[in-house]
């Protein structure tokens, strides 16, 4: 099974759930892995307080990971494909230049033809350019969700509790989270400190689980991934 992490960031009225930034990379690698590992072992990372019941945690964590999976399809790929295209264009240009400059000699013309198409054709024929096989990955097993207390998150929650003003508390939370290297947590608090209501958080920041929802997990609804303005996690 794949080890995933999902943050339950404590706020004034409930929690903001979001998948860890590693989730996108894990899910992008999943189609290349053997199907026997297509299962999720999700660690729900929360402060010391055990606010989440098992069904709520399972549903919320699965939704957060599901969202990261759906939004991850649109995530930008690395630059290797662009570099590959540049190489092809350079080979084509050099091949044409060699053929034109050959002046009727067969040796430069042959080298030009090799650069123009020969090398790529041979690599394709021998299967050297075939990418690693991928299958559409879908979780084959029901997710296993565990609840793990995070010392840093607990410290932040306790510090915020001592501040009365909401905005100041969120600003404090953002500072402490950045100091602890908890960037996902800091992004949530920064959005809230900027005056955003938890219910209007952008999907890539997370989704709100209000205190009243803690007793009724089926009221949870996930925002549409198409509305995302940035990558998940």
């Amino acid at each position: 099974m794949m080890n995933l992490a999902c943050w339950a960031v404590p706020i004034r009225d409930g929690y903001v759930l979001r998948a860890d930034r590693s989730t996108a990379a894990i899910l992008q690698a999943a189609p290349s892995r053997s199907p026997q590992f297509w299962g999720w072992r999700i660690a729900l990372i929360q402060p010391q307080s055990q606010q989440f019941s098992a069904p709520l945690a399972a549903r919320a964590a699965t939704m957060a990971v599901d969202y990261a999976r759906m939004a991850g399809d649109a995530a930008p790929r690395d630059g290797s494909r662009r570099r590959g295209r540049m190489m092809i264009w350079m080979e084509v240009a050099l091949g044409l230049a060699l053929i034109i400059a050959s002046g009727g000699h067969w040796v430069p013309a042959l080298a030009g033809a090799w650069l123009l198409a020969g090398r790529r054709w041979l690599r394709w024929l021998l299967g050297l350019a075939t990418p690693v096989a991928q299958s559409p990955a879908a979780p084959a097993q029901s997710p296993l969700v565990s609840s793990d207390a995070h010392a840093g998150l607990g410290r932040i929650e306790r510090a915020m509790r001592e501040v009365d003003d909401d905005t100041a508390a969120y600003a404090l939370g953002a500072v402490l989270a950045r100091a602890d290297g908890l960037d996902e947590v800091a992004e949530v608090y920064e959005a809230l400190a900027g005056g955003m209501h938890p219910s209007t958080l952008p999907p890539h920041i997370g989704f709100w689980v209000a205190d009243e929802t803690l007793h009724n997990p089926w009221r949870l609804a996930l925002p549409a991934p198409a509305a995302a303005t940035g990558g998940p996690g």
């Binding site: 080890n3 860890d20 590693s22 989730t23 690698a29 290349s32 660690a43 207390a149 995070h150």
Partner: peptide, 24 residues
């Protein structure tokens, strides 16, 4: 804490399998 260990595990899993996909 267990939460910190879970984050390390998830980050290592991401690193490990991303590296495997890249070099496979």
């Amino acid at each position: 804490s267990m939460g910190e260990l879970a984050v390390i595990r998830a980050r290592v899993e991401a690193d490990l399998f991303t590296h495997a996909v890249r070099t496979a």
